[in-house]
Design a protein around this nucleic acid. Structure first.
Length: 886
DNA sequence: GAGTTTGAAACT
DNA sequence: CAGTTTCAAACTC
């Protein structure tokens, strides 16, 4: 906890060792254990972990549903984010050599859910550049399946053992593609597999050791050996360089801020990191400002005692020091600083990126390696490039639905780097360490709050740095962007009576804990990256900047801004709205809610038999069919109704209330149905972010599933099949709606955006329509429909993403786990059970995925989902009523 | 720069 | 859990 001490540790080699020891506690095998070191480790905020294992804390963290419920798989997709021009990419100089091998890990289907699987290795030869960069992809499915866990899981860097071995780019699991699951990419830098060369393995995968741990916070903790540090440093350097580049978006800077205080360290930024930064920080390129670990201080403590500890400043400072120390010759080669990348809430994303660098193991080699760092950096960049290319291919070929949780973000950062390169090779081919757009975005958010150094929100301010202007909250509430971001307010802030300063660290921490106690996710990064190989949601086309994958965890609740103004958190973050949003009349340029998009389709296609609601109309109007999803399938879209049939079940009875309208096979206005669906999706999505994430992750899958479901199912309304199929959906939708406790859901339902429901009976659903759905990349829909579908019916891909998916998918669980958002986790992949529709599986599915509806006993008993639905139904009514009331 | 609007956060 | 209030940012003028 004691940050100051941490600094000590960092500074001294011994400290490094100590830190390593601490890390060992985490799970680093290598860590030296000496009482002293242990002591130090305890003191030092920074825990040296060679191999960060999943911290127990993590498990805990993960466990909490609210925390990252849905692990988003880090998707390469983010690579899509690459788009973000903003993110400065480091280019060239760094690119070069690739001693470091980066491996992208494919996330196994399960992983997708879990998402956090990133295994990456960083093996860098301090002495020599890692000549060998092995580039391997591993897919880990976190067996645990719980995304949260994944998230929470710290990454062990050391585990070279882990999957990645020398094999240069290898994908352990090609499977990703088929499922469309996002592949988690992990960059492995293997210069040479040093003994200590850390590797990231996702523990969750069950494969075993993972070096990287994802914290519930979504932070990726990595333990790096000194060598790694070098690599990281290089990485950061590159990043910084990128920042320096005019081209680099402020966002990027912002990211850097939080993650690293490059400015100070390198002076890239302004370097002034007022309160937060310790004097030392200036020198530290790595200096992080992590006043808080978002998710958990706890986690951080666990994972990174040092970081977590005390005050953000200290931690920041400590980290920086640690880095410095690393560089300093003094560092013991052995000693490692494992700086867990804390994902403080705000930091998450940043943390990822930073984490890598942060996690430097301080080795003497580090010293020597400092020079090497450059090499490493170049190597890394090279490796990254490689990776990115590979990933690009992967992505292109495969849709990676995986959603990246906040933690994933970190992972993403890793990936993103590669992805970015891969994705935007053209744009910034050289920059290897470029961050993905998503990352950037995330950073932005995070940065926004980041106080001094770079809060870089992308604000109109030239800097993009934002500063708070709190007057009454003393900057101790989430109203304060700085506080919310887990950073101290900067001098530049205009806040009054600010307590969010290092001097009030205690108070800040206390407050923070209180808030977290109420809402564990309060400080979690708001934006989750979904793996998006796929163009995410409808809006994505529009999304220029944001990777489709990125989504706001909680979603927005905009009523009047149409999600076209910064009032909208989604929009502000440059991310599209998702099923988790309860916005009305969403026109988010970065991606409208699935529901809306769906609605649009419906509207367009059907031309609204029933006059869509005004809102709906507006939405429709707003939505251009050209947009994304529909575009793709424009022809299909036109087709009358993409309606999915709803099954009318006994469950309906449950649903009935809601469904009242729903009950009708076709809702008078499809839109209304749609709305319901959306709501469902939203509602259904377990509030837990993780879940939601999962749901999102699977969006495509969902699409497919839905399409399949619809197409196949609808036609097959057979009592049996039909029931099964439908029941789940309907129930899901209806139930979901009803179930969705969140008022927001109700809002959604009631209102403005009516969403079409799928009714089986209506028969309206045409195979084609279903197909369309398939085609539709729309995340929302898929999520909705899919989510519902999934929930209700267990749809599994043939591939199986087993447990994780199941878990995630577990409708009940997901549903039960009510995350604040109540997002439903769509187990798109959930494979576990399929009711085979027999032929149902539509070969036509884009993905080629086959979902078998495992017996969804259509009825209540079946899947928890169904049950949940039934149970939930009542609520939906309420919600509806409420909405109506509104 | 002041005032209004907006939606999240906090409170009840 | 839902509704209301408070808050600060975003926006408008």
């Amino acid at each position: 906890m004691d940050s100051p001490e941490v600094t000590k540790t960092a500074s001294t080699p011994s400290a490094a060792t100590e830190t390593a020891a601490a890390a060992s506690s985490i799970g680093s095998p290598i860590v030296q254990e000496s009482p002293f070191s242990n002591y130090l480790s305890n003191l030092s905020p920074i825990k040296p972990v060679k191999n960060s294992r999943i911290l127990p804390g993590y498990a805990d963290l993960s466990s909490p549903p609210l925390v990252f419920t849905s692990p988003h798989i880090v998707s390469k997709c983010e690579a899509s984010s690459l788009q973000r021009p903003q993110c400065p990419q480091k280019s060239g100089p760094e690119t070069p050599k690739d001693n470091v091998g980066i491996s992208s890990v494919d996330v196994p289907p399960g992983l997708e859910k879990c998402d956090s699987y990133l295994s990456s290795k960083f093996n860098v030869d301090s002495e020599k550049d890692g000549d060998h960069s092995s580039y391997t992809k591993e897919q880990h499915c976190s067996p645990s399946g719980v995304v949260d866990e994944y998230l929470s899981e710290p990454v062990d860097t050391e585990c070279t053992d882990c999957v990645h071995s020398a094999n240069p780019i290898t994908e352990t699991e090609p499977s990703i593609g088929p499922r469309g699951l996002a592949n988690l990419q992990t960059i492995v830098l293997n210069a040479d597999t040093d003994k200590e060369a850390p590797t990231f393995a996702l523990p969750t995968s069950g494969q075993g050791s993972s070096n990287c741990v994802l914290s519930s916070d979504g932070l990726l903790y990595e333990t790096l050996s000194v060598q790694n540090l070098h690599a990281n440093e290089d990485y950061y350097d590159h990043v910084e360089a990128g920042l320096d580049d005019p081209g680099v978006s402020q966002l990027y800077r912002g990211m850097s801020r939080r993650c690293l205080q490059f400015e100070e360290a390198q002076g890239i930024g302004q370097g002034s990191v007022p309160a937060m930064n310790s004097p030392n920080s200036s020198s530290d390129p790595m200096g992080l400002r992590l006043p808080f670990s978002s998710a958990g201080m706890e986690n951080s403590k666990i994972l990174n005692p040092g970081i977590a500890a005390p005050s953000g400043k200290r931690t920041m400072i400590n980290l920086t020091r640690g880095l410095i120390s690393n560089r300093s010759p003094n560092h013991n080669s052995n000693a490692r600083l494992s700086i867990p990348k804390r994902s403080g809430i705000g930091l998450h994303l940043n943390s990822i990126v930073k984490a890598l660098p942060m996690e430097c193991n301080v080795n003497e080699s580090m010293k020597t390696h400092l020079s090497e760092n450059e090499k490493c950096s170049t190597q890394l960049s090279n490796s990254v490039e490689k990776i990115t290319h590979a990933e690009e291919k992967m992505l292109e070929n495969q849709v990676v639905p995986a959603v990246v949780s906040a933690t994933s973000d970190s992972l993403l950062t890793m990936k993103s780097v590669s992805a970015l390169q891969s994705l935007e090779p053209n744009e910034t081919p050289p920059k290897k360490r470029t961050l993905s757009l998503e990352q950037c975005e995330n950073y932005n958010e995070l940065n926004q709050s980041s106080p001094k150094k770079r809060r870089k929100k992308f604000t109109p301010d030239g800097d993009g740095c934002k500063r708070c202007n709190c007057k009454k909250t003393k900057c101790l509430k989430l109203y304060c962007d700085c506080f919310a971001a887990g950073i101290y307010c900067a001098d530049s802030c205009s806040c009054q009576g600010c307590f969010n300063r290092p001097e009030h660290e205690d108070k800040v921490l206390e407050t923070r804990q209180l808030i977290e106690s109420r809402n564990p996710l309060a400080f979690a990064p708001k934006i989750v990256h979904q793996a998006s190989g796929v163009p995410a949601v409808i809006g994505e086309e529009v999304n220029r900047t944001t990777p489709a994958s990125a989504r706001h965890k909680r979603g927005c609740n905009c009523k009047r801004s149409m999600c076209l103004k910064k009032y909208c958190e989604c929009y502000q973050s440059n991310v599209g709205c998702s099923s988790g949003c309860r916005c009305e009349g969403c026109k988010n340029v970065f991606g409208r809610r699935e529901d809306y998009t769906i609605v649009e389709e419906i509207m367009s296609s059907t031309t609204s038999k029933d006059g869509p609601n005004d809102i709906a109309d507006e939405k429709l109007a707003g939505v251009d069919h050209s947009n994304d999803l529909f575009h793709a399938d424009s022809s299909e879209l036109e087709s009358p109704a993409p309606f999915t049939p709803q099954c009318q079940f006994s469950e309906h009875g449950n649903d009935a209330p809601k469904s009242g309208p729903f009950s009708t096979r076709y809702l008078p206005s499809p839109l209304s149905h749609m709305s319901t669906i959306q709501s469902d999706s939203k509602t259904s999505s377990p509030t837990q972010t993780g879940d939601s994430l999962l749901a999102e992750i699977d969006c495509r899958d969902m699409e497919f599933t839905i399409a399949e479901m619809i197409g196949e199912l609808s036609p097959k309304l057979d009592p049996i099949s039909g029931i099964c199929y439908l029941s789940p959906q309907r129930t899901a939708s209806s139930s979901a709606v009803a179930a969705s406790p969140s008022a927001s859901k109700t809002k959604d339902l009631s209102t403005n955006v009516p969403r079409p429901q799928f009714e089986v009976g209506s028969g309206g659903t045409h195979m084609s329509s279903s197909i369309r759905w398939h085609g539709l990349p729309v995340t929302p829909m898929p999520s909705l429909g899919a989510g519902k579908m999934i929930d209700d019916v267990l749809m599994e891909e043939e591939d199986t993403t087993p447990e994780i998916l199941k878990e995630a998918c577990n409708p009940i669980q997901s549903v039960k786990a009510t995350s604040p958002n109540k997002k439903r986790i769509s187990p798109p992949h959930a494979h576990s059970k399929r009711l085979e529709l027999g032929s149902i599986v539509s070969g036509g599915l884009k993905s080629g995925r086959k979902f078998i509806l495992k017996a969804v006993p259509s009825f209540p008993p079946l899947t928890p989902c169904l049950d949940s639905k039934a149970t939930k139904l009542p609520p939906t009514r309420k919600s509806n009523s409420q909405q109506q009331g509104k």
